[in-house]
Computed example of a mutant assay.
Amino acid sequence: MDEDGSRRGFTSAVMLASDQGLLCVTADQQFLFYSLDFTEQLLQLNLTKRLVGYNEEIVDMKFIGDDEKFLALATNLEQIRVYDLSSMSCSYVLSDHTEIVLCLDSCVSSSGNPLIVTGSKDNSVRLWEPESANCIGVGIGHMGAVGVVAWGNDKRDFFVSGSSDHTLKVWSMDGLLDNMTVPINLKAKAVVAAHDKDINSVAVAPNDSLVCSGSQDRTACVWRLPDLVSVVVFKGHKRGIWSVEFSPVDQCVVTASGDKTIRIWAISDGSCLKTFEGHTSSVLRALFVTRGTQIVSCGADGLVKLWTVKTNECVATYDHHEDKVPVDPLIYLFSDDFSFNS
């Protein structure tokens, strides 16, 4: 506990592409804002502001559009709420799933339109046009809950989903038109039985040539896109893998695991290049920052750690709590303080 009685653990982290700042969600639903400062070529985090007043568990959240004026939240409900960042009031709700929404991702399409994809316990994926709040596509085919989704990074004309049915699917955007009011049936252009247990994480390579999946079966697998041909399997973690991420500059992947470690793997031969130890509980997220020279990790021990890849050294640890957090906090940058209004 802090002196003011708040619990402030966090378990995971997601960086903005511009690496401008962090937002961590805490056990008591506070939002902690960190600036990113560079001192002697090292990344340092500084707490700059705090937002309180949001009372629902955050499952996932993403900015919408390049201007990032809206924030989509999944909160253990069958719907997605979209908030206007200028007032943090709920602008509209996306409602068509029949069970809890577990994940979402957003992008700006090649035509310049913002899009949202969601995955749910109802075993489906749905595609949304935020400007009209319409569902424009439905993907059926998974036999279990869809726990992870990820857009392509380059053309943005496909997305990938991973499910508790152990399969990975690549979904086509074919047939989508502007200003649609009736959803089309999305088609999976590739599917693979990727793992022996639930898929916990997926990430698409910066050039859209590969996708990586991490699973509770303790392995991470790299697949060639678009046909999901196996490239390499990473084996060595002693517990499930919660996070996978491609390096922005090198041919390698970073994984975070329930065995309390972070590992960097070579895509060329599947060898483990680096192992980072220091968390005292499951590592739930690990991400490359500063052009791949450092890693930020977040664990169920409530610690955020910064690591230098070259030396394997933990250069900073951030611990503002005593209790771990049961939610997945995400990292974002806001320019002002906000309060939430339903």
Rank of each mutant, 00 (worst) to 15 (best):
D4E: 13
A17S: 12
A17I: 05
C24D: 04
D28W: 03
Q30G: 08
F33V: 08
T39I: 15
T39P: 05
Q44C: 11
R50A: 14
V52N: 10
I58W: 10
I58S: 09
I64G: 03
G65E: 01
G65T: 00
K69T: 01
F70S: 01
L71H: 02
L73D: 00
T75W: 04
E78I: 10
S89Q: 15
S95M: 07
D96E: 12
D105H: 03
D105G: 08
C107S: 12
S111T: 15
I116P: 15
G119M: 10
W128Y: 12
E129L: 07
C135D: 10
G139Y: 13
G139C: 06
I140D: 13
M143C: 13
A145G: 12
D154C: 14
D154R: 09
S163H: 09
S163G: 12
D165M: 11
H166G: 02
W171A: 05
D174A: 15
L176T: 08
L176R: 13
L177F: 15
N179Y: 12
N179R: 14
T181G: 08
V182C: 03
V182Y: 10
P183H: 09
N185I: 12
K187T: 14
D198L: 11
I199W: 11
A203H: 15
P206Q: 09
D208C: 07
D208I: 11
D208T: 13
L210A: 05
C212I: 10
G214V: 00
S215K: 12
R218V: 09
W223R: 06
P226Q: 02
V229M: 08
V233L: 06
V233K: 08
G236T: 08
H237V: 02
G240P: 00
E245A: 05
F246H: 02
C252K: 02
S268K: 09
G270F: 02
G270S: 02
G270Q: 01
S271E: 02
G278F: 06
H279L: 02
L284D: 13
R291S: 14
G299D: 13
D301E: 06
V309C: 04
T311G: 04
E313I: 03
T317Y: 05
D319Y: 07
P326Q: 10
Y332K: 05
F338R: 13
